[in-house]
Design a protein around this nucleic acid. Structure first.
Lengths: 217, 217, 217, 217
DNA sequence: TATGAATGAGTCTTCATTCAT
DNA sequence: GATGAATGAAGACTCATTCAT
């Protein structure tokens, strides 16, 4: 099985030009896995929905697990990527009095929009992250190597500027992630049958995080 | 398979006096499932760790799924039960200015202590709830039937008294649950290798929830 | 496993005084096996319906197969017995012109009455005879050893007297049995939901056999 | 499991070109089931005799029961089919004085020849029909839907023409079937070790049926 | 004598993976 | 590249039988 790290390096630009069959396989896999979960989907089922022979899947992915990674990892990376881009954060942080609010509002808005676009893969990402130990370990590793140092620096800066309260970085991250992913889980997994008012929801989530973290002045 | 609702009614006190083998099976199952996840554990493996013939498992549980339920459901019920007890909440709510803070502090403290005691089953509960659709549906149903009406009433009262902000009940619940379970997931699933300072953590979580929900006065 | 022959010898008078539990086991077994077939009934099921512990069954019958034999064999023996009793047949045969008709009518009437009384065991007998090779072999052996010589003699006598046509004994037997058991199979196995007019049915069956076998004069 | 009715419609011509392994599986299954009965044969045993992996069986038949149906149903249909063909019967019935005799002789001859060709499947058919309730129900249903109306009409016609005695259709059918299948049971199941003189046997069976049913003139 | 918990071999079935075409 | 038949290990579950109490 190829490791997630490999995907991180060479994975993304792979998507340039997939063959039609390859695309169909990916789409079928994403649909089915998001419906039933990785372990509950047979490769034969994916092949059937993709209109492809079962063997063909194994031309593109040496193992079933690789196929899962091909779905999860890019999605994960795209999800975390913004936090790895220097300029964006820096810029936000240099701004005026409202910068922390602006930062959180931006993150919440951006990530919810992203999750709406990639609903199925986000759903898979969450489910596999929670239930598959190895997937979790690999994603965790990617996070620690790539996103964490940067995020840590940003949070450190915010604390210095007196924008946020003085709790551990891990806690700040947990509070942000819990509230955003708590929403995803409610919306995409527990109650997908309800209607959601994006604008209202974003506001509530952003406010929750801001009130929890912002330093009272 | 017996329905979860049956467990709700008659399940808990069942644990009076299990035979030794029965206990061993439960313990082995809890350990293994919490380590690897329900689908990844074979009944033969459970039997082996329990020092019991495979067939013996099926004397106690008609199906493997029943065994899972015997683990998950009591745990879930005990987790949710406090919210179903009238007196407790009522009492807290009648208190003075600090009542909402007291309520949240109590819930957070109580549930974290509970989760520490039942770490393995809580872990299983979370993982299966997220990854198994049917488990989720059943638990959801129990919640809607039993806890929701009561919780709704309490939240309504808090809103009336001007203690908490005016957002939907679902959102209040999500914020509370996200932050508590977000902590559990971090502590028990993602980073179980770290040390945790209970007192500090409870404070941070309680504060997060309170700041997010309390009405500014 | 005890052989059928043993039952033949010592089996019947066994029924003198069965304990209550023993009786209940037999009754439960007969009901269940006639409903579902020997292989489809679990000993645990029999024990349950009999209100007896599973182990108790094995006090009375060393194996499950022995239990089946205890049901089948007496039923078979009672079914075949009349043909082994000298006096009855002799007597009939000595009678006047209508003797062959009388014989067949008597057999048909007698065996149908018997089958009605013992419907469940007859049903079991037929089913197991057809589907279980070893049961069949044992019953066949009993027939060849006990009933056949006698029956053969009777048929021979009837041929001599010009009452019946000159075909092989085996064929005579087959024609009689086919038509009687064909009726049982229809009545008890294929269409048990219909109502049956005993008098009419006996007539039809007897006539069928008589017309087929009687020598035209 | 595909319903028997589906087999009725599309099943027969399926046999065009089975793969070699498929054929081997069918042959092994037919042999083993006819020897020991469906319930007594393990799929692993079939696989072994067929020289095939056990899993291969399940590529061709979703369940073991489906495999049984694949054997029984075509055999049953071919057995009953002649009675569903208009022209044949019509033609026979239009004939002269000997038409009823001709009809029965034809049926007896034809069906015995068929049974000789398909001895093993006929054996399976009989055994499973008698012992498996669900198989019986399905075959019964097919008979009632397809063959019965046609057979009923023919019998009605024969009665009108004064060819046969006035008894219920069900009885006519039973007499015919009992005598033909009684022969099969004797020949293929009870005493397969004997030699049979086809010509003689056919005559005896046909005569039995004719004498039983024909109206004396 | 009666129990019923325990056994473990045996059953059907699934499915990721391989490979000859 | 693409196929899909074939594999066989592994899975959940059943049940006649035993045996300590």
């Amino acid at each position: 099985m190829e490791s997630l790290s490999n995907y991180l390096i060479k994975g993304i630009d792979k998507e340039k030009k997939l063959t039609l069959k390859h695309q169909k396989i990916l789409i079928a896999a994403i649909e089915l896995i998001s419906e039933k979960g990785y372990d509950k989907v047979a490769t034969s089922e994916i092949a059937q929905r993709a209109g492809v022979a079962e063997g063909t899947i194994f031309r593109y992915y040496k193992t079933k697990k690789d196929l899962l990674n091909a779905i999860i990892v890019p999605s994960y990376i795209k999800f975390v990527a913004p936090m790895c881009i220097n300029d964006f954060m820096e810029e936000v942080l240099e701004k005026d009095y409202h910068s922390f609010r602006a930062l959180i509002c931006h993150i919440v808005d951006d990530r919810i929009e992203f999750a709406k676009r990639e609903e199925l893969t986000i759903k898979i990402l969450i489910q596999e992250f929670i239930s598959q130990k190895d997937t979790r370990e690999e994603i965790k590793e990617i996070f620690i190597d790539n996103a964490y140092p940067r995020v840590n620096k940003i949070i450190y800066r915010l604390k210095e500027k007196g924008e946020i309260i003085d709790i551990y970085t891990g806690e700040v991250i947990r509070i942000i992630i819990s509230n955003i992913f708590g929403y995803f889980i409610q919306r995409f997994i527990i109650c997908p049958e309800l209607n959601y008012d994006d604008k209202h929801d974003k506001e509530v989530i952003a406010n929750t995080i801001i009130k929890a973290l912002a330093k009272e002045k």
